[in-house]
Amino acid sequence: MAKHVATLACTHHPFYFKATTALPDQQMPQAAEWKHKVEAYRDTLARAQPDILVMIGSDHFHQIFLDNCPQFLIGKAPLYDATFYNEMREFGIPKYTLQGDEDMSRFLHQSLMDQNFDFAFSNELKVDHSIVCPIITVRPQNDLPIVPIYTNIFAPPLHSPRRFYDLGCAIRRAIADYPSSKRVAVIGTGHLSLELGGPRQFMETGPDPVFDRQAIEWLRSGNVEAILENVTHPSMEKSGNATHGFLNFILMLGVAGSEGADYVDSLDLFHTMEAYFTWYPKERAA
């Protein structure tokens, strides 16, 4: 069976590439520290020596729109193009081609359906910065095949925090059942408190620094009970209109098995809190 070797959950700040590749005199003051933290985080993936990456992100109205909007979707293709024109325009992110793994996509899709998750699928998926940003940060050599999974964190109604957590658990079980000798890492991205297109965007801190600190502690300790007790759609809305990206962190806690994280780091970038978590699955008695 496949070996689940690491779970990574992090924010996907689209400005990272531009911020750290600009000429030194044009870089933001935090650029060097940001780069240093990201490179340290990158090592936590390399250490696990993965063969395949299952990547969880959320399309930001790039391929998916309100005319046809799935809650959960899995990519099943031999290759995935990445980076849309408007992402290049706004964030300066380059174009990529990522290798797929159709066999694993097919297996995960069937397993998730069998576990009562009605996944949509795509045989022609162009992935956006929710999946490309972690490639840039934790696997810039882009040398591994991926299985992309999208969640809807954007177009209401959204699934409950509990459903996201349960999906993470189902993904963990599906990987454990995959008949392969490959080493699988799961990488998911989302947000802590975040405001976009509203009155609290791009302030001196993220829109809710109290939530950010609390969320980091919950994830550090793997305290899913506290998250499910305290985090609701109205509470996320109150923390910032795009805070629903935190649902992907909840999902990742399900993938990790709601244990304490083995690696935690964060960076206060004035308008948002960046956060980086890695879990290494523990050997469990049969």
Partner: peptide, 27 residues
């Protein structure tokens, strides 16, 4: 939708604002 409303007008105004007032001034 807040994301569409932001991203389109950033596409229009970010560059001229940046030139005159500095990074993220339109945001």
């Amino acid at each position: 939708h807040f994301f569409l409303n932001l991203t389109l007008f950033v596409g229009i105004y970010d560059e001229p604002y940046m030139t005159r007032y500095g990074p993220l001034s339109f945001h």
